[in-house]
Design a protein around this nucleic acid. Structure first.
Length: 591
RNA sequence: GGUCCCGUAGCUCAGUUGGAUAGAGCAACAGCCUUCUAAGCUGUGGGCCACUGGUUCGAAUCCAGUCGGGAUCACCA
């Protein structure tokens, strides 16, 4: 790699000139700012201590050494303490012709033994997916792609939370007020149907509680004693006892929900290699807890409940088994983690879960560590920020939840209106036009969400539809389509690039960006951040658009220049497509 | 209250892990299609990088404190 070659040369220079041995991290190699000549810049301030010369003199000496010893370096210049290196035209042109049509440029070959697991989505089966899940799904799927591009053997898993009191609530409501309604009879998607009854439960339950409070019962007692709540709890007990009627109802309603989820996932373009169901893993944790008890690593209290004492690590005590022996969320996660480790022995286990659960994952790792499972070190919580609305958090009770299916519908409608308005689809077949709205709508949505640093909270304003201009998915898609159109008109093959052409600054900038792509993939993998890929794709598209606007490509009369610019275009289109692919965004051939 | 995260243009976000004069997009205004797709390009205005101190050649970035916002501290998941 050129970058490390440059670093090595600088290390060598400092060693030979000043007798100081540096490590690669001591050399700050960065991109040269646009206003200066050159492609790479090294700040030499750290070296003046040993050179005992001015920054300018030091930079000049190092620059001269590097120029003399590296054929790739054509020249250098020094501004204040900054050494700007200029790379030879030959290097850039060779780079261009070598990689312009390389299938997986920038990707690392998959290492089969590097098994890495990533869990994302993890929905509850009592309501449809909302905007929060959308961020989760897109992040998870994209990070999986990025890890693959970094040579990992990725296993994508989903953990469906298909049991528990909240599931019973929608079941109970359906039983009471459903009149045997089904997705077929109502025309509702299965997950929306279940969600409808979950909301209904909440409505009647709150009415009951209000009524009880009105008769003088205390709020807390009312909430616990409301008949609907008692009935839901009774249903959960029956479920755990495998009551036939309840199990049947549970299976039926969950099947509806899965059908609905599948449609949403499919439309979103995300998938899984394996799906775990909490109903079949929730008991596994008990075995681990019992072993921990007999090993004396956990404590049993007088009421028979089991706890992990984490006070020595600055945390609290954590409940692992209730007094009645039933398991809690943490217990279940211990079991699932263990199961996954047994099944795959992953080198790393990633959990894409919102930052509201930071504490949960700290505890999970700590408890596993305490119980002696060394692989607890391989657990990483990919914590991401909340999606907030202008009014604050989404609240289902206030009806401010942004539904995933509705959101995608809205986006498609906007894409359609926009395309119509701009006359983009006048010569499109019906099917192709439909395909285009979907591609652009999803491109806009995915890019909007993925361009933000995962760690940070982000704002979504439902009143303003997501933009299609500027720093957006469609902007990048458009750039790709534009290049494709250009290439269709250029019938010539692009094979050899002549050596004696002049490279303009705008062209140089594009080459440099393309050259940077592999290290962007690497960085995105290390940081598990699709945002780095997104911002890179935008920068590349923007740079190309500037070039396209200002410089003649097809109509250039000099064949060498024409070929060179077409090569640049091909390479850019390929890289845009590749980068957007890592985000799960398709790029159209025309739009 | 304890712990953790965040605070950059009117708004939404970048800022390559400490480097040069802090950047994009949106919104506003002014231009550019008889020539490769105008979902594009060019230009103008807009900043006490929350505040204060510290570390050093150099800080939006690291450390400490203050203020403001969020999350969490359940026998919910």
């Amino acid at each position: 790699m050129l970058e490390s070659k440059l670093c090595q040369a600088v290390i060598e220079a400092v060693q030979n000139l000043y007798g100081l041995q540096l490590a690669e991290k001591d050399v700050s190699l960065q991109k040269t700012r646009k206003e200066f000549e050159g492609e790479f810049t090294i700040a030499v301030f750290p070296f003046v201590r040993v050179s005992k010369k001015s920054p300018e003199a030091t930079a000049t000496e190092i620059g001269q050494y590097v120029k003399d010893n590296l054929t790739e370096v054509a020249d250098f210049n020094v501004i204040k303490g900054f050494l700007n290196l200029q790379i030879t035209k030959e290097y850039w042109l060779k780079f261009l012709s070598t990689h312009q049509n390389e299938a997986n440029f920038g990707f690392t070959k998959t290492e089969e033994s590097e098994v890495v697991m990533i869990e994302y989505s993890s929905p509850n089966t009592n309501k449809p997916l909302h905007l929060g899940h959308v961020r989760n799904n897109l992040l998870g799927w994209s990070v999986a792609q990025i890890l693959k591009a970094n040579g990992k053997n990725v296993v994508k898993v989903n953990l469906v939370n298909d049991r528990g009191i909240h599931i019973c609530k929608s079941m109970l409501a359906w039983q009471k007020w459903g009149n045997s309604e089904t997705p077929a009879s109502s025309g509702l998607k299965g997950d929306h149907l279940a969600g409808k009854y979950y909301v209904l439960f909440d409505k009647y339950y709150r009415a009951e509680v209000a009524e009880m409070i009105a008769t003088g019962i205390e709020k807390e007692i009312a909430e616990k004693q409301a008949p609907l709540m008692l009935a839901a709890q009774e249903m959960l007990r029956k479920w755990e006892a495998k009551d036939e009627v309840i199990i049947k109802l549970w299976e039926t309603m969950n099947a509806w929900v899965y059908e609905g989820f599948e449609q949403t996932y499919h439309r979103m373009g995300i998938d899984f290699d394996k799906t775990y169901y909490e109903s079949s893993t929730y008991l596994l944790g008990k075995l681990i807890v019992e072993k921990g008890l007999s090993d004396g690593k956990l404590i049993r209290k007088a009421d028979q409940s089991v706890w992990a004492d984490l006070t020595a690590d600055g945390l609290d005590e954590k409940l692992l088994l209730r007094a009645d022996g039933t398991s809690v969320y943490m217990t279940q996660d211990l079991g699932t983690a263990h199961l996954r480790h047994e099944e795959y022995q992953p080198k790393q286990m990633f959990y894409v879960v919102g930052n509201e659960q930071n504490y949960h994952f700290d505890v999970l790792k700590l408890v596993l560590h305490k119980l002696g499972y060394k692989w607890s070190d391989n657990i990483y919580h990919l914590s991401y920020g909340m999606v907030e609305l202008p009014a604050g958090k989404m609240k289902s009770r206030e009806g401010t939840v942004v539904d995933a299916d509705d959101l995608m519908d809205e986006m498609e409608k906007t894409a359609y209106e926009k395309a119509l308005e701009l006359g983009k689809i006048d010569d499109f077949e019906n099917e192709e036009a439909k395909q285009l709205y979907a591609t652009i709508a999803m491109g806009a949505l995915k890019y909007f969400i993925l361009k933000v640093d995962p760690q940070k909270n982000m704002l979504f304003n439902p009143d303003e539809s997501i933009d299609f201009n500027g720093n957006t998915g469609p902007f990048i898609q458009y750039t790709h389509a534009r290049i494709k159109s250009l290439l269709k008109k250029a019938s010539s093959d692009l094979c050899n690039i002549a050596a004696d052409i002049e490279i303009l600054p705008k062209e140089k900038e594009i080459i440099r960006l393309l050259h940077e792509y592999p290290s962007v993939i690497k960085l995105a993998g290390e940081n598990r951040s699709p945002a780095l890929i997104a911002n890179y794709a935008f920068e590349l598209a923007k740079e190309y658009n500037g070039f396209y606007q200002e410089i003649t490509i097809l109509k250039e009369e000099n064949d060498d220049l024409r070929n060179f610019r077409l090569s640049l275009s091909v390479f850019t289109a390929n890289t845009i497509k590749s980068a957007m692919g890592l985000l799960g965004i398709e790029v159209p051939e025309r739009m």
